[in-house]
């Protein structure tokens, strides 16, 4: 099996998706939102369905629904003080149901688990550019996010606005999930986000090492996963996640 253009496009856009997702994932895990993130990613489904029905690229439909869900979660959490998993859980079943109705049957499976559509060069360019922007914005938000997670009251006392950085974080997270829909699939994007971080957490000794290892592991598991999937002709999404699980098991050995 030769290395063709399609493989290169998948490989490079996959790495950029992993860059953004795994960096954000460190904060998702730190905020104990791993399952929230997982469920949030399924909200993409009706968006994908609607985009397909109206002939748009599914990424845009997914992005619109995810951003809306992220904002909705933030807003309802603020208003009601319900925990985010309850809010997201409430919407999840509804959006999944809606998604199953809206997404054409033959494309449903792939929207959930990736490998849906061939990646065109301009898709890859957009995915890479937006992922990189998400990555940079997350770096800029890191300090505020961290203090908001560790000690929200201290953050407020020092003049931070933890509420707003949380919203920024949710929106960035939603976007990064949307970018991974084509390659990894909406169900598995949640896993790509948290797997590197939970593995990195097992052997990091500081914030800096935690964030760096999350990103490095995210890149390695995605790169290796896509290579393996290409070689054996597996779909990339599940292969990437299974590669990540191997890293997680290895990381357990480091845990004292």
């Amino acid at each position: 099996m030769g290395i063709d253009n399609q493989f290169l496009l998948i490989f490079s856009s996959g790495l950029f998706v992993a860059l953004a997702a795994s960096f954000l994932g460190a904060f998702v895990v730190a905020k104990r939102m791993a399952l929230v993130g997982d469920v949030l990613s399924h909200v993409a489904l009706p968006g994908i369905g609607l985009a397909l029905v109206f002939g748009y690229d599914p990424i845009y439909g997914a992005a619109a629904f995810l951003l809306l869900a992220a904002f909705g979660t933030w807003f309802i959490e603020r208003k009601t003080e319900l925990p985010p998993e309850a809010i997201i859980g409430t919407f999840f079943t509804a959006t999944l149901a809606l998604g199953v109705i809206l997404v054409p049957n033959e494309e449903l499976f792939e929207s959930l688990f990736g490998n849906l559509f061939a990646i065109k060069p301009q898709d890859a360019a957009i995915i890479m550019a937006v992922s990189f922007i998400i990555f940079i914005l997350t770096i800029m938000l890191s300090r505020r996010l961290t203090i908001g997670i560790v000690a929200p009251d201290l953050a407020k006392s020092a003049g931070f606005k933890p509420d707003l950085s949380y919203l920024g974080f949710l929106l960035l997270f939603a976007l990064s999930v949307a970018l991974g829909i084509k390659l990894i699939g909406s169900v598995l994007m949640g896993a790509l986000t948290i797997l590197p971080a939970v593995s990195a957490r097992n052997f990091s000794w500081s914030l800096k090492s935690f964030l760096s290892f999350s990103v490095i592991l995210g890149l390695i598991m995605t790169g290796a996963g896509i290579f393996i999937s290409n070689y054996f002709n597996f779909p990339p999404g599940p292969t990437v996640i299974l590669t990540g699980i191997i890293f997680f098991v290895i990381s357990l050995l480091f845990k004292k």
Partner: peptide, 15 residues
Amino acid sequence: KSELPLTVREFFVLK
């Protein structure tokens, strides 16, 4: 108990 392995130095640098 925090999921973030913050060092004391990093805690201060946040400010």
